[in-house]
Nucleic acid binder design. Sequence first.
DNA 1: CCCGCATCTGCGAAATCCGCAAGACAGGCC
DNA 2: GGCCTGTCTTGCGGATTTCGCAGATGCGGG
Lengths: 167, 167
Amino acid sequence: MASRSADPKDSRESKNGGGPQLDAVSLAIIEQLQEDGRRPYAAIGKAVGLSEAAVRQRVQKLLDQGVMQIVAVTDPLTVGFRRQAMVGVNVEGDVESVADALAAMAECEYVVMTAGSFDLMVEIVCEDDDHLLEVINKRIRAVPGVRSTESFVYLKLKKQTYMWGTR
Amino acid sequence: MASRSADPKDSRESKNGGGPQLDAVSLAIIEQLQEDGRRPYAAIGKAVGLSEAAVRQRVQKLLDQGVMQIVAVTDPLTVGFRRQAMVGVNVEGDVESVADALAAMAECEYVVMTAGSFDLMVEIVCEDDDHLLEVINKRIRAVPGVRSTESFVYLKLKKQTYMWGTR
DNA sequence: CCCGCATCTGCGAAATCCGCAAGACAGGCC
DNA sequence: GGCCTGTCTTGCGGATTTCGCAGATGCGGG
């Protein structure tokens, strides 16, 4: 199912925790859809050297497998979220359970466990200062196991891309 | 052009750095496209109570204005990027010019100016450890104005959503 | 050798996308 | 008030795209 039969011009191994491997053709399809998520299958097929139906099947499989998703992404500012912050968190005890608790909060857009002087980094998206203050001081610090937090309020977003795999 | 909340026209609100305001209908359209970026315009129109052509025009305008984009997003691990890190940067001199220089690097997925003990936070996406090491120690620290950096290597990504505006 | 499995291709039918022109509506101006 | 203007909305036809299905091809196992 993965690839390997048609045209093995690529071979990376490393079964990481996620899923199946991708061949060069699927990579090329993903690149096309990263430029425009609504690009027609026929146009993609022309670009990657495959028939329209084949592209359709591959895209469907990539979606089913969860390798990629085609979605609208927005600028938080224009949809009413005017305060964002990155919060570094230090934990005592089980880091992962704290991470799960934070991930359950709607305002936490992004939660990652890290190595370094923070155990967790969390991106918060809020409507205004009051909302941000409440989330950081009342909700995050109330989670059992949270030892301390340090906040970095966003002043200006300079770059934000979704071009993984495009280089 | 657009207004901002429940009903047709009211006037302005703080013009933030981004752009125009969105009314409830555009919000609903965005929600539809956040569930499935390829959903047909007619289906969206039925869901939000608008004609197909009207939905098409609004979507096109939202795209042209940069309010949203419809793209494929992938799990970095499955497309071959196995090392990620958040890097906090301290700057002497003009912060914005340093931010621009970092934003120009392909490996920098995310660049934001912040208030707090870092002037900039940068998310790096790399293929392996060697690549990550090179980007941080050779490229970022070589940018004029970079005083110091602190790295937080990703151990496990716990949450990553694209649901802005959906709450 | 034969068979199962997976993918790719080609083709028609149905649905969708896209441009165009006309009607509806609110706001600004004299 | 009356008028104008810009925007939004609607409806419609043609080109394009999507979708399902059947057949062809390649590969590995029994």
